[in-house]
């Protein structure tokens, strides 16, 4: 979803994501180790993500550094920052060490519901909540201005909106969502690793694209639904590839190659079709 906002709404390829995803996880881990609890950790993770996005945005709008480079710069800086926040390359959030993640909290709150269902229901509700919030936000005055900025920057300026300001808001917001995702995933798998963000942009992009292929429709409601569905399908596909792929010689370390190729194929497809179509 975070990737969707920058990539599709702002037309801004934001590589900060690879850094802000583990940043969210790292900040969450830090707060949990300091004894602040999971919820405070999640809020702090979002804020940290927004700050990272803001940094990229300032690099781009104020220093006029190209979008891709701004993102890469922030990502590199964040690698060190994440290590500092975490203090070591990986941290366990295991319950045995006394860490009570949201999932542990939930299990204790509803002891009679099996944990698998509980996790599923909770994550499902969280996704729906985020989707609805993003839907609504994009239809507000600010949200509309952000979308218009990605569409036609010249127009936005002549209509009295500061395009740079809208970019800053959009990039911050998307990275806050990415950090939220990082924080949630860390709790889900029970540990934080410095390398968990590598390839996140491409995975996110793959999800966005897969969603667009699966579902048609141009309204905001449909667009965010595409993203959600795309993510689920993409994750299912990778899970299938990992679990059964060994039959055709697919190894876990091939996953990034597979994702990269998938995105390349889908992105090249319209051009290829056009080129082939012209040769009559």
């Amino acid at each position: 979803m975070g990737v969707f906002i920058t990539f599709r709404c702002l037309n801004f390829p934001d590589l900060t994501v690879d850094g802000s995803y583990p940043l969210g996880a790292a900040v969450l881990a830090l707060l949990m180790y300091r004894g602040y609890g999971a919820l405070a950790g999640i809020v702090a993770a979002c804020l940290a993500g927004a700050l990272a996005g803001l940094f990229t945005g300032v690099l781009h709008t104020f220093s006029r550094i190209p979008a891709l480079l701004s993102g890469i710069l922030t990502m590199i800086c964040l690698y060190s920052i994440n290590l500092r926040v975490m203090g070591r390359p990986n941290i366990s959030l295991s319950e045995n060490l006394g860490h009570r993640t949201v999932f542990v909290l939930l299990r204790d709150a509803f002891p009679r519901v099996p944990e698998v269902y509980l996790r599923f229901i909770f994550l499902f509700l969280l996704v729906v909540l985020v989707k609805v919030m993003v839907d609504l936000f994009l239809q507000t005055e600010v949200g509309l201005s952000i979308r218009a900025t990605g569409d036609n920057e010249t127009l936005v300026a002549t209509q009295g909106i500061d395009p740079n300001c809208m970019k800053l808001i959009g990039i911050s917001l998307s990275n806050a969502l990415v950090a939220l995702a990082g924080a949630m995933f860390a709790q889900y798998q029970g540990f934080v690793d410095i390398n968990m963000g590598i390839g996140m942009v491409i995975s996110g992009l793959a999800s966005v694209i897969v969603g667009e292929v699966l579902l048609r429709g141009r309204t905001i409601f449909m667009a965010t639904l595409q993203v959600v569905l795309g993510s689920v399908v993409y994750r299912l596909a990778t899970a299938i590839a990992l679990n059964w792929g060994y039959n055709i010689g697919f190894k876990p370390y091939d996953l990034k190659l597979f994702t990269g190729l998938l995105v390349i194929v889908i992105l090249s497809f319209p051009i290829l079709k056009e080129k082939l179509g012209r040769v009559k």
């Binding site: 507000t140 509309l144 218009a148 569409d151 036609n152 141009r218």
Partner: peptide, 22 residues
């Protein structure tokens, strides 16, 4: 703005000069 609808485009123009809020 080509990927926005007619009414969204007009809204941008209508809100010109007004502070944008949530």
């Amino acid at each position: 703005a080509p990927s926005l609808t007619i009414e969204e485009n007009l809204a941008i123009a209508y809100l010109k000069g007004k502070p944008k809020g949530i």
